[in-house]
Every structure is written in C-alpha cells, then in structure tokens.
Design a binder for these strands. Structure first.
Lengths: 159, 159
DNA sequence: GGTGAAAGTGTTAATAT
DNA sequence: ATATTAACACTTTCACC
C-alpha cells in the first residue's frame, strides 16, 4: 500500500478536499477566496495533498451511456490461490474494462466490477481475458438492470 | 434518465474526454496544444460536452485511507417492492456513505456499496438508516478485505 | 464549428515575515 | 505556514470566417 505514515489534515485541508471533490476544475483563486487565504498559500496546500497522495487524481466523470457502454456487471470469483494480492487480482486489474477488483471475505474470493457495451462484449472479455488467468475455479455474474446512484465521493468531515 | 437523445461524439470529442478523464485539471491551453486547435474552439467543445451531460462532473479522487475510511462493503438486499426506481432505492441513495445503488437481476434486488470508517459505523448506518426503509426483507453483507483496483474510468475509443 | 485578437484574470515562483 | 509582489500564461468573449 502507498505510504500512509501518519497524515494530519486540518480544517483547511478538509475544506480544500471538499471543494475539489465537488469540482476539480475550481481555480486556485476561487479556492483562496472561499477559504479567505492568499492563492499562493492554497497552491502549497494543494501540492502537498497531491504529494501525500491524499488527492489521488483529478478526473472527469464521463457518462457511460454517451459512449454506449450500457452493461455493468459484478462478478464474484472463487480462486484456488491463497489470500493477499495474488497473480489473479493483478491480471484482472490490468483489463481496462475492469473498474474494480476487491478481495472479499466469505466463500467468494474476489469481486470484480466490469463495464462494457453489452452482454456480448462481456462474454468476449470473459472468454479471452478471464479464462487466461489460472486458479479461477468458478464465477458468478450479477447483471445491473438500473443504476440509481454511482459516485466515489467521500463524506468529508468539517474537522 | 437524463436526456440521451442521440449524442454524436467525433474523434476530437473523444480525445478531449480521454485527456480530461485522465486529468480534469488540464488547462484549455494544453488541451488546445494536444489537439492542434485554438483554445477558444476547445472551450466551445468542452462547454457542449458539459451541457449534454457527457461530462457529468469534474472530481478530485480523495484517498479514503487518508480520512480513516477503512471499511468498504457491498450489501445485497431483497425487497418486497416491485422493480423500477422504488422508494427504497431513492432512500438509500440519499445516504452520503452509500456510494452506489444498483437494481440487479437475480434473487437479490439491490446491490449497495457503502464506505465507512469501520464496522461499527457500518452497523450504525444499517441500524439507523437502512432499518427506516420499508420493504427491505433481508440483507447480505460482503466486506472488502483489500482493494486491488478502484476507478470509474471508461475505455474511450479512438473513433 | 472553427480562428484570432484583446482585455481581464489567474498562476506561480521568489522574497519576506 | 502564509502573504506580497510581479512576470508570465491562461481564459473567455466577440467579430469574423
């Protein structure tokens, strides 16, 4: 895991995070105005948050429907390799259509979230990509019919 | 669903989306340089992509570990209300710690992704929030032990 | 849709407290 | 850790194509 050697975030940091989580394209000048500080001070704060990997990325959330990516699926997998970051998870993580790979408690070992155009393209990935990965004993696929909410925004406390 | 009345994206739009998905804070000027166009032309494109809801949001991805949010869980729920956007899903979507709510095929009706500090805070939400929602017959919770990959980035084609 | 020009505004590094 | 300054770069509107 990436160095999490004690990170202290004060009220100002949390405020910056809340504003940038809501709008990553906010200007430094606007951040400064909202916080009542000089722009240069904010710039320093933001750079440190990036360096410390508190801010991991700035990203535009693109509408999957606009790109005809209509299929979302969660796939539970049982695997024969032991716990920890196995080969299988790392191979799965390399597939661009795979958005999430988790190692989970319980009978199923991995939970994988995949987004594709349609069920045919999911089948194609399963046949050509998943089948290459050794140690996968079985898979159980859950198809999403409708997504009501989907965001990664965290609850950021005031203090 | 938000108006998806035929959206045509050309090569230039897709290129903009790819660059902004990778770095939402890229300047208009840099976008223009990468695409070999004038900044004013890029600005028009970007504004239209925002208007058409192709770009849904610009967000800073904040590291949950930096905020001590160590617990991630997927909860499958059976409910007695029929399919479609029910009351239950809308109530679930309002809870800030709930990052995703999907209506899924199969025996389980809903799949909910929740991020909290720890198992105690998850239990607290389940007791105080979930229990208020009528029609939930049962829940089955899967705890994430380790996340290997987690991103919402789409595969954006060249053309 | 796209460019070019111009005024306003923002960015960022250096210096100082 | 934050503020001031100042040079430079970017943003954005508008007239034109």
């Amino acid at each position: 895991m990436i160095g999490e050697t004690e990170i202290f975030l004060d009220k100002t940091d949390l405020h910056i995070l809340r504003l940038m989580q809501g709008n990553a394209r906010i200007s430094n000048a606007d951040l400064a105005r909202e916080l009542g500080m000089a722009p240069s001070g904010i710039l320093e704060r933001v750079k440190k948050l990036e360096q410390k990997n508190v801010i991991m990325q700035y990203t535009a959330r693109v509408n999957p429907i606009a790109l005809q990516q209509k299929l979302l699926a969660f796939i539970f997998m049982k695997a024969s390799d032991g716990p920890g970051s196995s080969n299988a998870t790392l191979e799965l993580a390399k597939i661009p259509e795979v958005q999430e790979v988790h190692h989970v408690a319980g009978d199923d070992c991995y939970l994988v979230k995949v987004r594709t155009y349609d069920s045919a393209s999911l089948m194609h990935i399963m046949r050509t990509q998943f089948s290459k990965i050794p140690n996968i004993l079985s898979t159980r696929t859950t198809i999403v019919l409708e997504t009501v909410k989907e965001q990664q925004q965290l609850v950021i406390p005031e203090k």
